[in-house]
């Protein structure tokens, strides 16, 4: 698989490590919402089809990317910097 890195162009997926569902960006406050935190940490949608997911360019520029990929065909539909995605959701850091 080739991941279209927004800054560096197509890069071999071998350079990346995989974290999982991009919903992991939205971490609830575990002290105030323990139930939500349990679901955040342990439950997954795990869809067959289009999946937005976090990849880390570990052997590259160390950027976190949100990659949109089809889990049935392995087709990669796009990639964004996770930083931009998080900021787009009103996160400051």
């Amino acid at each position: 698989m080739l991941i279209p890195h927004p800054l560096l162009g197509p890069r071999d997926a071998q350079e990346f490590t995989y974290l999982g569902d991009a919903a992991l960006i939205d971490r609830p406050d575990g002290l105030r919402e323990p139930e939500a935190f349990h679901d955040y940490l342990y439950l997954r949608d795990n869809p067959a089809g289009v999946h937005r997911e976090l990849w880390f360019h570990e052997q590259g520029d160390r950027s976190w990317l949100v990659v949109t990929r089809n889990t049935v065909t392995h087709e990669i539909l796009g990639a964004e910097l996770a930083r931009d995605v998080a900021r787009g959701r009103g996160r400051s850091k």
Binding site: L8, G9, Q14, E15, Q59, G60, D61
Partner: peptide, 12 residues
């Protein structure tokens, strides 16, 4: 081919 003079990257 796509990594001409002036290119720099990290890889494995």
């Amino acid at each position: 081919e796509r990594f001409g003079p002036g290119s720099a990257t990290r890889t494995m």
